[in-house]
Design a protein around this nucleic acid. Structure first.
Lengths: 253, 253
DNA sequence: CAGTGTGAACGTGTTCACAGCC
DNA sequence: GGCTGTGAACACGTTCACACTG
């Protein structure tokens, strides 16, 4: 595996597991913090703690990139920052367009983490003519009619969709047709795209629902323990929604 | 597995795989759409398409909840909506507080998907005294000093953190101390919480970095094909960042 | 000796393919 | 006949534990 010096790009950059890729930004952030505090080296243990993972996972992740550590010492912070940045493609800069400048779009435009790492907001686009020309985060909003021109003129390959659900698919289609091949979707819809186009979705409501699931479970366990432990049971405004019995009005055949 | 009528909550609600839980909201959304269009039943194939997964996965997921389908027919839409809602704990309502009413916090407060499914914004909290009393999304912002009181008065168990990175951990600690046991974190920081507290993180910058990784890979493959296929190569403003050779200024030992 | 790098064991998630039922 | 429900096979991801090395 990756014999010392990096040789064939294909052999070492092929097949980095998705799960590892998803953690690289986490490591990078932790490393950047260390770098700013001028820490020269870290052990896998320390870095793992800073990134919120366990050290075995971190070492395995790094092993996919190559052998960038020093046994008995740890990892050189600056060197790792560079290697991970390069692996993620952050040594080049990525022009990004944000479509849909409502509350969320504006929040994204103002988000500092954007510019910090290789990403540059090339344009803000909204369908509302009243928005056109209005500056948000110092960038004038452009009308949706300009979308295709903006994408091709700026060589944009990453698009962020922050429109209402209904507008998302048409916007997506236009972005893709104009040449965008990666989309970050904040609208609560499943987007359909041709092969070769990546979509990642960020969905607030889904995250909350997952939390609710676990929260409910906790409450259930608490209730179960209550027989033996009749202590304070928080958040019991009404009857514990019975996981049994109470069937809805509508019933299947 | 789940013999017909649901009996012991523990036996059937124990051990729904995390991956399945994460998809339930997706199914629920697709089903809600069908329900609004008064579609009475769906096959696993149709529903899977609407949710953007494959049908085998969907059937396996549903099998963890019980046998809610009818062979040869499909699933009753209304019934499934109810079962999934109940499983996710959405038949009760969850008061939520949002801390940090900047651009993002305001976007979240205005987000419709919130109220639609069991979640209710109980309070908006910000550290800036100038914000206090100002209504956002029709809800007056309260000062951070009130945090503990708000959480306990409303029986809040889910908190959303939309503060700057530096404030996130202290806010988190206060929320947890006040009784919150589930946290949705939008700040780009790793939060440390006691056992029994769930944290989910939404991180825009990480999502973009993952997209950049894949985007870079595509560009690399494109470049590789270029030898045989010297067609138009989009987004090649500068030299293909060599995955080999070019070492940074800083070097390891 | 301290700490990386990694095979091997393990666990989780996905897909297949078909038996069983309506 | 058509579609669900599910064991069994497979793929992917995580953890363990230790050989190896600066």
């Amino acid at each position: 595996m990756a014999t010392g010096r990096t040789h064939r790009p294909a052999s070492r950059s092929r097949g980095i597991p998705e799960a590892t890729v998803a953690r690289l930004p986490l490591y990078l952030r932790a490393l950047t913090g260390l770098s700013e505090r001028s820490v020269p080296t870290v052990s896998s243990e320390e870095l793992a703690a800073a990134a919120g993972v366990n050290s075995a996972k971190l070492r395995k992740d790094f092993s996919y990139l190559g052998s960038y550590g020093t046994r008995g010492v740890g990892y050189d912070v600056e060197y790792l920052v560079y290697q991970i940045s390069r692996e993620l493609g952050l040594t080049q800069d990525w022009p990004v367009v944000i479509v849909g400048i409502g509350n969320l779009g504006a929040a994204l435009a103002n988000y500092g983490g954007f510019a910090s790492r290789g990403f540059r907001v090339a344009a803000l686009i909204d369908a509302d003519p009243a928005m056109a020309g209005k500056p948000v985060a110092g960038i004038p909003v452009q009308h949706a009619d300009e979308l295709e021109k903006i994408v091709s003129d700026n060589g944009v390959s990453i698009g962020v969709i922050a429109t209402p659900a209904g507008a998302a698919q048409p916007v997506c289609d236009r972005l893709v047709a104009a040449g965008v091949t990666s989309i970050l979707n904040f609208a609560p819809t499943v987007l359909t795209v041709p092969d070769g186009v990546d979509v990642r979705k960020v969905d607030l409501s889904i995250e909350l629902q997952i939390l609710a699931f676990h929260e409910q479970r906790k409450a259930g366990e608490e209730a179960a323990n209550q027989a033996a432990h009749p202590t304070a049971a928080r958040r019991d405004d009404s009857a514990e929604q019975g996981p049994d019995g109470d069937v809805p009005a509508v019933m299947p055949a």
